[in-house]
């Protein structure tokens, strides 16, 4: 197990009196896949938004790779290598799959403010973009408008776009939500492949996905950490069974 790459201390966020996330301590070790699970409304997505700075925390601190990122802007956090995905697939609908990936690649090259240059300079990224699309099985769809791709492939495109940034750490918000069975398997395979050399924190509802994939699991309920540990430990915890599995049956 590596060192801690992402650490939150006493993370709290309230919305006009409603405390969505309440004093959460979270430590993610480098190189692991860490899952954040919990029933609906447990504060998982809010937690994600706090960690990636899409929401400012009311209290608490966040450190990434030894740096205090508590006061940073979301774009700055992304530049440090902490890149998130979204619950609803986030692709650029009217751009082709290739262009989607290129948008991420061109950011690293810089010069994206050059409004006087022809977009032909972006062709230098085509080879790398194709490679990334091949990695996620989308090579045949490079020219397809992203909006026209089926749902599972949109998620794959999203991962390819995220990987284009070569992030140190990925935050995946329900990567398999709303997917057909064979698509779920494909995404799980994909996550297994891309984890090499990276850290992944994911929100996931599908427990069978979590079981086979994640090294550490944090269970949230009502904005608090209920339990933490590997799947075997967490799934035996009676409180977790009551709070999470219980409500999943209901």
């Amino acid at each position: 197990m590596g060192d801690i790459i992402l650490e939150a201390r006493g993370l709290t966020r309230d919305f006009l009196g409603f405390v969505a996330v309440n004093g959460v301590d979270l430590s993610v070790r480098a190189g692991t896949i860490h899952a954040l699970i919990g029933p609906n409304g447990a504060g998982k997505t809010t937690c994600f938004n706090l960690l990636t700075k899409f929401l400012p925390p009311s209290k608490g601190s966040i450190h990434f790779n030894g740096r205090d990122i508590t006061a940073m802007k979301p774009a700055a956090v992304a530049r440090l290598g902490l890149v998130r995905s979204f619950q609803i697939s986030a692709v650029f609908g009217h751009l082709s799959a290739l262009e989607n990936v290129r948008v991420a690649l061109q950011r690293q090259r810089g010069g994206s403010y050059d409004f006087w240059r022809s977009e032909r300079v972006l062709q230098q990224f085509d080879a790398r973009a194709m490679q990334l699309l091949e990695d996620v099985g989308l090579a045949d769809h490079a020219g397809t408008e992203a909006a026209l791709l089926p749902y599972g492939r949109k998620r794959a495109l999203e991962i390819a776009t995220t990987l284009a940034l070569e992030p140190k750490m990925l935050l995946l918000d329900e990567p398999t939500a709303g997917m057909a069975h064979e698509d779920v398997d494909r995404i799980v395979q994909l996550i297994r492949r891309v984890r090499v050399g990276r850290t992944i924190l994911m929100v996931e509802h599908n427990l069978s996905v979590v079981e086979g994939l994640c090294d550490t699991i944090t269970v949230l309920t009502r904005g608090r950490v209920l339990a933490q540990g590997d799947y075997a430990t967490v799934s035996k915890n009676p409180e977790v069974i009551a709070a999470y599995l219980g409500s999943a049956d209901a």
């Binding site: 990636t52 899409f54 979301p74 774009a75 992304a78 890149v83 998130r84 995905s85 979204f86 986030a90 692709v91 650029f92 609908g93 009217h94 751009l95 262009e99 290129r102 948008v103 991420a104 061109q106 950011r107 010069g111 994206s112 403010y113 050059d114 409004f115 006087w116 240059r117 022809s118 977009e119 300079v121 972006l122 776009t161 995220t162 940034l165």
Partner: peptide, 20 residues
Amino acid sequence: SPFGQVLKAIRENEPRAISL
């Protein structure tokens, strides 16, 4: 232009552009 490409990305999905 490369700039225009980012503009279109913002038009399509601004939070995603920020997350990149």
